[in-house]
Design a protein around this nucleic acid. Sequence first.
DNA 1: CATAGATCCTGTATGC
DNA 2: TGCATACAGGATCTAT
Length: 295
Amino acid sequence: MPELPEVETVRAGLARHALHRRIAEVEVSHHRAVRRHATGPAALRERLVGTAFASANRRGKYLWLPLGDEPHDALVAHLGMSGQLLVRAADAAPDKHVHVRIAFDDGTELRFADQRTFGGLFVDELVPTEAADLVPTRVAHIARDPMDPLFDDGLFVGRLRRKASAVKRALLDQTLVSGVGNIYADEALWRARIHGARPGLSLTSAKALDLLTAVRAVLSDALRAGGTSFDSLYVNVNGESGYFDRSLAVYGREGRPCPRCGAVVRRAPFMNRSSFYCPRCQRAPRAVVKPAKMG
DNA sequence: CATAGATCCTGTATGC
DNA sequence: TGCATACAGGATCTAT
């Protein structure tokens, strides 16, 4: 699934292959893909035709392409679970599940394909952050991602350590730290030897910093692996880059040995999905008994 | 305010 | 072979 490393790979591909070309036509073939564009598909097309993407930006799992020479708004993309952005020759073979086509005037086009339709495109106003960089209004509520030079480590540690909820839930909370999804959350927790069910409250500052370091390490390892596969006029996007099978220590590896200690990796249901962990390296927290309600 | 859970969606894998 | 069910999960909404 596209998490920060995959989205960054796409961003780099867009920067190489989709900027400064006049948009000649836009075709929306699946309404759901543009559902977050409040004024509808026709208005989206109207805004895009005749302009060009000025740059390719990212925060967490959000991508955006500012429009025109002095941008005040941008085309925002979120890939959801299965979204892809593909740059193709306009007459290239069709791709599956293409819901939006943005045709440039040089014979290429940007295709948004999305099997499960959790992702989408919309145009949004750019607003300045506290550090004066510009982000789309509807991206402003999420935290900077841990690869951002302006990410505030101390703020993250402080907020994490005030959370009663599970550390893993906190890692997936994009307002605390952005860009981490289910796969890299499990990998980072394994690297830091922390059980995801532990309450944020239970971490020392040092341990919380260890976790942040592990998050950065796993993201940058994945980025290196994902970044190499990208070369041609094809913006790869899916989580299916070589990184997955080669380097994952626990995710998707139920029943196989922990690469560090050899104990059998377990899977446990968590937040309507799965968590994978090593029961020896990552000690489960003691069960907390809820105090009975008096009255 | 913080927190937990439900919900959206469809292709693939599995069980009977 | 067909049919039903589980599963994958990011963001957002609702309820407490």
